[in-house]
Nucleic acid binder design. Structure first.
Lengths: 114, 114
DNA sequence: CTTTTGAATTACCTATAAGAAATATAACCC
DNA sequence: GGGTTATATTTCTTATAGGTAATTCAAAAG
């Protein structure tokens, strides 16, 4: 219903789902592994996995009875690209803030001296 | 209620709010400017701005009657940091995919020759 | 002080999300 | 086939999001 980027950010806007991504970062895990790692019911985990899958943040394969869950770079690619597009602006803002802080500290120092 | 990172990603999970960030990327705009730019009611815009502010994605100052809206790098800093932490994994996945594609193309070429 | 304008808040409605519990599907084992 | 295990789907409830309209607040202008 909503656009892919919104789906991706929405999927990331949940601590459990971010935890799942973190847990599969170093290799695939089964749904049961994820149920054990996140004290949540199995249907709850499956629902989160569906959200992550529709956001292209994970992929699921089929190994015998289990469905190992993998990181999918595609969804994160979109989010990272969007953020990168603004990074220069933020960087500019960082620089301005750094400059402001430096200036204030400098003036404070002068005050202290007088 | 939820953690800062979830608030930030949730704030980014809406096209109108991303549009607002885009519109103020090159300089502050007033609420009325944003109402005109996004066909949405004024209370609607104000509600989005509140979400963005609580996610530390914008700041609002007070100039006479108007409240110019600025980008705030703080919120995006958190989101970017989280994503960067995983970028290496995705990059690894990218590389594996690239390698796979290259290998498949190579085999296809061999097939074509035979 | 009254009016006007910019913006925030409230009230309300509808749609969707998150959670648990129950049930269904799918693959393996005997 | 029948049982078991792994996972998905459905159903229900509660909470929250997003939208509009009406009201309120705040600052400026006359």
């Amino acid at each position: 219903m909503s656009d892919p980027l919104s789906r991706t950010f929405l999927a990331l806007a949940d601590p459990t789902r971010r935890a799942i991504l973190s847990q599969i970062a170093d290799g695939p895990l089964t749904v049961n592994d994820l149920v054990a790692a996140n004290h949540l019911s199995q249907p709850g985990i499956s629902k989160h996995l569906k959200v992550l899958e529709e956001a292209c943040l994970i992929r699921r394969e089929r190994v015998a009875k289990t469905r190992p869950v993998h990181l999918d770079p595609a969804g994160l690619q979109g989010a990272a690209a969007w953020i990168d597009h603004y990074r220069q602006h933020w960087q500019g803002a960082f620089d301005r803030i750094d400059a402001l802080i430096a200036r204030l500290q400098d003036e404070e120092t002068k005050h202290g001296r007088q």
